[in-house]
């Protein structure tokens, strides 16, 4: 039996890496008495798949995870029992059973929406102007390190939406929709860099994952 869970990853667990997040949830399911299915073999692992690994330091307000159980459990029951035993910073928002044959999360992930807060003394008009100039470009070449190799890539086609939400005091908030998944994945930091914002403090939150169904 497969289920799809919607959960949050907030402060302070935004600093916990992807693999350790899986361990945390595995133990929570075990404490809650949820009958997880395990892989066969030398080193059995719980069948848990989390969509689009969230970079260390980024929060998530609607993350998704598929789990496989050895026997059916009522979704409300899963929600109540697991919620009662989660560490601070995670919340379980929804549980729904998955129809057999539903494609896996990783294969169909296409886009992600973010809300990015950062400190800046630039006025709102200047920020809007920079956004407009950036979006008007046809190519934004950046470099990044991947698998210990530095490579260049074009950021522009990966920015689907970008806008200023608000500027309050020293804090500015941007909304972004960026490519995610196997066909191109980019982090919100890349957009900040392209906007000429190299703050030492910013806070990214992934608010939605968008799939190709």
């Amino acid at each position: 039996m497969k289920y799809r869970l919607t959960f949050t990853k907030e402060y302070p667990v935004k600093y916990v890496g992807h693999m350790d997040v899986v361990t945390t949830w595995t133990r929570a399911f075990r404490r809650a008495g949820i009958p997880l299915a395990y892989s066969q073999g030398f080193n059995p692992r719980a069948k848990i798949q989390v969509a689009g690994s969230l970079p260390v330091g980024t929060m998530g307000s609607a993350e998704l995870m598929d789990i496989t159980l050895t026997e059916p459990v009522a979704p409300d029951d899963i929600l109540a029992r697991v919620s009662a035993t989660l560490p601070r910073g995670y919340r379980l928002l929804a549980v729904e059973p998955l129809a057999p044959g539903t494609p896996g999360l990783q294969a169909s992930l296409r886009r992600a929406e973010y809300r990015v807060t950062f400190e800046t003394d630039l006025p709102a008009d200047e920020l809007r102007a920079r956004i407009d100039r950036l979006l008007a470009r046809t190519e934004i070449v950046q470099t990044r390190v991947r698998r210990k190799r530095t490579e260049t890539f074009d950021l522009r086609p990966m920015i689907i939406n970008l806008s200023l939400v608000e500027k309050q005091g020293d804090d500015a908030v941007l909304a972004m929709t960026l490519s995610a998944g196997q066909h191109g994945n980019v982090r919100p930091e890349a957009v900040l860099t392209a906007l000429g914002i190299n703050n030492e403090w910013y806070q990214a939150e992934r608010t939605k994952l968008v799939f190709d169904i």
Binding site: V13, Y15, P87
Partner: peptide, 23 residues
């Protein structure tokens, strides 16, 4: 405070060592 810690944790390896809040 959170923001002060964020500034530092963005620059170090394995920041989860320094945050507490474990189950």
């Amino acid at each position: 405070n959170d923001r002060e810690l964020d500034r530092i944790l963005a620059t170090v390896q394995k920041p989860a060592r320094y945050i507490g809040g474990e189950f």
